[in-house]
Amino acid sequence: MSRIGKKPVVIPEGVKVERQGRYIKISGPLGDLQVNCHPRIKVKIVPASAGMTPLRKQGADGKILVENGHPEIRQDRQLHGTMRSLIANAIVGVSKGFEKKMEIYGTGYSVNEQGGKLIFQIGFCHLVERVIPKGVKVTIEVGATRGNDVPAKFTLFGIDKCLLGQFAADIRKIKPPEPYKGKGIRYADEQVKRKAGKAFATGAA
């Protein structure tokens, strides 16, 4: 049995969860999401009752139980944990949201938002554009770098963790950080392994 899958998912106050066929619809203050449930995994929605004192103390409206009917099958064990994580991420998304902080290093590099697109000046002979997906908000804290030490900074925010992560990865792919001076686009919490440049010995005259 999956150690992740067997943990119940607490439904926080203000979040509504309902079953619609093979989908779980999750609604909260930030929006709505749907999770497609695999037919081999059972999902039970347990509303909070008067007898569920611990949940009441947490201000929860109930819990979700994800059950695997075939724990002896490896694929089902993997699906068990995956389904539980998808549902938990959706609940966090509609109640709190997710964010990805990004940084750009490199002299003369910049980013700005225009017409639903992010436009990057990133050291190429042309500008690079990326369409901002529906449901993702962008906040630019610092639009341009200052030398190679002060980065441009922007934050991506959304309720769909998968969509947000994919968009952040697509942006980073434009110009991943290089290992010598660290120029490029990176996550704010990313550690870039640096390499020493080539050393040239000077011969005697």
Rank of each mutant, 00 (worst) to 15 (best):
G123N: 05
H70S: 15
G135L: 08
I87F: 08
N148M: 06
H70R: 15
K96M: 07
H126L: 05
G93R: 04
K134E: 15
T107C: 12
D149A: 04
H126P: 00
A88E: 09
N148T: 10
G143Y: 07
R84F: 04
G143R: 10
I140P: 03
G97E: 05
M83W: 11
K137W: 01
G143M: 06
Y105Q: 00
R77G: 08
G123T: 07
I119M: 01
R74V: 08
Q114P: 00
R77V: 12
G97L: 06
R84N: 13
N89C: 09
G143H: 07
T107N: 14
H80A: 05
H70Q: 15
L86F: 14
G93F: 13
T139C: 06
H80L: 09
N112P: 00
G81T: 10
L127I: 02
R130T: 03
R77F: 08
V136C: 04
G116M: 09
A90V: 04
M102I: 08
Y105T: 00
V142N: 09
G81M: 07
K100E: 13
I91Q: 06
A88H: 14
F98K: 09
V128A: 10
K117E: 04
Y109A: 00
H126I: 07
Q75T: 12
L86S: 10
H70E: 15
I122D: 00
K100F: 10
V94L: 10
I104A: 01
E103R: 14
E72V: 11
K100V: 13
K101M: 02
I140L: 08
M83Y: 09
V111A: 04
Q75G: 06
L118R: 03
K101E: 09
N148L: 05
F98W: 15
I132W: 11
L127S: 02
P133I: 10
N112C: 08
Q114K: 13
I140R: 08
K101Y: 06
F98Y: 15
D149E: 12
G108Y: 11
Y105C: 01
Y109V: 00
V128K: 07
K100L: 09
T107K: 15
N112G: 03
I140H: 07
I91Y: 11
Y105F: 14
N112V: 03
V131D: 13
G108L: 12
I119G: 00
Q75I: 15
D149C: 04
P71L: 04
I140C: 12
I140Y: 06
Y109E: 00
G81V: 08
L86G: 01
K117R: 11
I91C: 05
I119H: 01
G106N: 04
F98G: 07
Y109M: 08
R146G: 14
T82M: 15
K134I: 11
R84S: 11
N112L: 07
M83N: 07
C125N: 04
N112K: 13
V138S: 11
F124V: 00
F124T: 01
M83H: 06
A144T: 03
F124E: 07
V94G: 02
R146P: 02
P133S: 14
A144S: 11
Q121D: 05
T82Y: 14
G116D: 01
N112R: 13
G81R: 06
L79H: 05
I132A: 04
T145H: 07
Q75M: 13
I87S: 02
E99R: 12
G135H: 12
A88P: 00
G115Q: 03
E113Q: 09
